[in-house]
Each structure stands twice: as structure tokens, then as C-alpha cells.
Amino acid sequence: MTSRPGPSVESLRLESFGTRHARLLAAARRHGIEPDGMVLPAEGMFTADDGAGIHYLEWPGPADELAMIFLHGGGLHAHTFDVVGNLLRQHARCIALDQRGHGESEWTPGRYGSEHCADDIAAAVDRLGLKRVVVVGHSMGGIGAVEWAARNPPELAGLVIVDVGPELTSSATASINDFITSRPTYAGVEDVESDSLAANLRWGDDGRLGSKYDDSQFHPGATALPMDDEMRALGRRIACPTTILRGERSKVLSDEAAASFAADIDGADWQCISGAGHTIQSSNPRGLADAVLHFLERLR
């Protein structure tokens, strides 16, 4: 009987420093960004108000009274902002959260949704001693950022909403949700299509690579996310400077939907990021960083 070969050396080194650093440099080069000086972020954990352990990344940079908190979308992870964090780390304190049930953060079945996300942002601000914060929220993370911004916390300096709004294209969101809940597994990294996907995998008890996120939160009724009129009502309560960014190739948010949501938020504007899809931080990190930097200059 022929024995099955074990995992390759590359697969076993999935989370090594060298592998993660190589993924970062490859991502920069793929987008025509000079990789010299690119660094992996520091990592930490804090405890949310309900006891959940939340993992975060922080890119080294000069001390600055202004901090940015980056929030990824559903099924992703904080490392999706690796390149953007490097591009912006000289301009503010850059922090990215693994949302609960994602990445290295704790799984909390039955406790997911925009309210929990907003509570976790508030906990990050408190635990990390942040005084003036710009939140950059993508997709599901953007909805949580809107929820927190609508509370008008005193630390909130600005809001960047990335490719999400009250009205989303249902076919595109259904396709994304179907992929997330399908939970594909892989024998090794050789079978994985992209470096970004590889960064979202860990070894399972069955000896295969599987996704780091808790897919239970994506089943119908498991996660409370305000949409339509409920999200518009939240938008009308936001009082800080706000911009909405839409990916040019996004099939999730249309130009019309972005403009309509901007009109709901006092003083908000919106723009289309060229060469980007729904996940702007991965498809055009330079475009996202430039848009955020322009927003920061307006604040200052």
C-alpha cells in the first residue's frame, strides 16, 4: 500500500516569518510598489468588553496623536492591509483588527454583527489609548465602522467607508457569501491560488489547510447587519468628516449607490478608485492609500 506523502516544506512554513515576509514583498511588487523598507507589523491582543480576545496588527511608524483603525470585510483578515499599512505608517499610527471570528481573533458563535464590531472598535480605542481616530472600514467592517461612527464617540476624527452602503448588488454579495460558507480545504499551499488566500489558512485537525474564519456567522440570520433604511438612519447620525470609496470594478457597490449614501451623511463625499475591485486594499493598495492620505490632509 502506497503511503500518502506528508505536507511539503512550503506548507509547513505557512506561518513562518520568512513566508509572511515573502508574501508581503510579492504583494508590493505585484502592484508596482517598491518593496524596500516594507515591514511586517507587530502583533497584539486585547480583551473586548464581552471577554472575546481580539487580535490586532500595528505597523511601526512615528508617534502621532492621530491613529487609523482598519477593518477588513467578511471572510478576510487584518493582513489584507499589509501593503496599505506600510504605505501609511509614516502618516499616522496604523492598526488593523482581525474582526472577531476571523484571523487570530476568538470565535464567538452567536455574538457577531455590526453592534459587536462597534463595541470592539470602542474597546480597541480604550485598550490602546487612542485619542484621535480615523476608521477605515471595508465591506462588513465598513458597516461596523458606520455603527460606531453613528454613536459619535469623542475620539472619532474621520470615517472612510470602503465599498459598502445601504444598497448592495444582491447577486455579487450572494456569490461572495457562497464562497465563504463553502469552506474549501487544501492539501498544501501548492493547491492555493493566491498568496492572499494562503494568509487566511491554518492547519486543521484533519491534516488539511482550512480557512481561519468561523463560517457560522455567514449563515442566514446569524449576523445582524443594518442595511437599507436602517443603515441610512445610522448615516444621518454621523457628524465626523466622511468619505466613501468605491472600487471601479466592484460588482457590490454601484456609483449610484455610493453617491446616494454620501448624500445621507452630512458633508460626506465619495470617489471611485480606478483599477480596483470590491476589496480595494488588495486590488489597488496604492489607490486606497492615496485616497486615505488625501483624506488625512483634509483633516489636518
Rank of each mutant, 00 (worst) to 15 (best):
R30P: 05
A124I: 05
H55G: 00
L128M: 09
W107N: 10
A145R: 04
F81R: 02
L76E: 13
A28T: 03
I121H: 06
D36F: 07
D36T: 11
A157N: 06
V146T: 11
R132Q: 12
L87F: 05
H102N: 13
G32E: 09
H79N: 14
I69M: 01
E106A: 15
T108W: 07
S139Y: 06
R111W: 12
G51N: 10
T80M: 00
F81G: 00
V162I: 14
D98C: 08
A42V: 01
E167L: 12
H77M: 08
R29A: 14
G101V: 12
L159F: 09
S139D: 11
F81K: 01
P109E: 07
E58T: 13
S105H: 03
D126Y: 07
S170L: 12
P166A: 12
M45E: 15
V135E: 08
E65T: 06
D49F: 07
E43T: 14
F46G: 01
G158M: 09
K131L: 12
D64P: 00
G142C: 10
M140K: 11
I54P: 09
P62M: 03
H31D: 04
G61R: 00
E43N: 14
V134M: 07
Q90E: 15
L168S: 06
V133E: 02
T80A: 09
D98S: 10
I95H: 00
G61P: 00
G142T: 07
R111N: 15
V134P: 06
H91T: 05
Y112K: 04
H79L: 08
T47C: 05
R127A: 15
W107P: 03
M68I: 14
L40K: 08
G158D: 04
G137L: 05
G73T: 03
A27S: 15
S139T: 10
P154A: 08
H79D: 13
G51Q: 08
G85V: 01
D82H: 08
G113W: 10
V83F: 00
A118P: 07
E34K: 07
D119M: 13
G73C: 06
